[in-house]
């Protein structure tokens, strides 16, 4: 089954200096369980591509289906629900909620969804991303970058989503920690999760099995990273 289906997707931003085509007639399908990197120079449309799949942005034209559901024309509430239930986000700056502890950050999406056993599940998730349970009581600013990103990965996995979207997940980490995080994402993929990573870093792309190269809003190449 295709978890992501883009058909002739176009995104045009109207800016004061004129309109900018961030995506130009992009067609792509991603199957369940794929491990994908999206590369390309700055301004090539990588982030827009990710935002549209992540239901954070809506296309100007074309069709988008996530987990088999057509998202064209859905209202904010419905899109929010898709983000909550079907998509996990990982950010370059980790973006944990500062007032919540690590465990609470992981619990949060489950509480939003109304999952009852969120406490037990968050503890399982903490150890599954390789953190000691005791660290879970810490606030994000008491954790190292690598630890924060592990918590963020656990949070992204909380509602057992169809797709994990990661925007430069190692961009703020040193190379040793980057390798650990990529290994964790690879393990997560091997357990069956579809993962899409936007990156500049060939090192990161080398972990993935398929790479989209975007140039000027178009998919320039689609294949195994070389």
């Amino acid at each position: 089954m295709n978890v992501v289906e883009l058909v002739e997707v176009t995104k045009v931003y109207e800016l004061p200096r004129g309109s900018v085509k961030a995506l130009d007639n992009v067609t792509a399908s991603i199957e369940a369980g794929e491990f994908i990197s999206v590369m390309g120079p700055s301004g090539s449309g990588k982030t827009t591509f990710l935002n549209i799949i992540g239901c954070l942005d809506t296309p100007t034209g074309g069709k988008v289906a996530i987990g088999g559901e057509n998202i064209n024309g859905l209202d904010d509430e419905a899109l929010t629900k898709i983000r909550r239930d079907k998509i996990g986000f990982i950010f370059q700056q980790f973006n944990l909620i500062a007032t919540l502890t690590a465990l609470e950050n992981i619990e949060y999406p489950m509480i939003l969804k109304g999952v009852n056993e969120h406490e037990e599940k968050s503890k399982e998730l903490v150890s599954s991303v390789g953190l000691e349970e005791a660290l879970g009581e810490n606030k994000p600013n008491e954790l190292s970058g690598g630890e924060q990103q592990r918590v963020a990965i656990a949070r992204a996995l909380a509602n057992d989503p169809d797709i994990i979207l990661a925007d430069e997940p190692t961009g703020n980490l040193d190379s040793k920690t980057s390798k650990d995080i990529m290994q964790l994402l690879k393990d997560t993929n091997e357990r069956g999760k579809t993962i899409i990573i936007v990156t500049h870093d060939p090192q990161v792309a080398s972990y993935t099995k398929r790479t989209f190269r975007l140039v000027d809003g178009r998919i320039d190449s689609d294949g195994v990273f070389l």
């Binding site: 954070l56 929010t80 909550r84 239930d85 996990g88 973006n95 909620i97 939003l112 949070r155």
Partner: peptide, 16 residues
Amino acid sequence: TKEIGVMRAIGTSKRE
């Protein structure tokens, strides 16, 4: 603002 953006991204509704 940024935190609100994160919360919205990971599935918090406007109403919440």
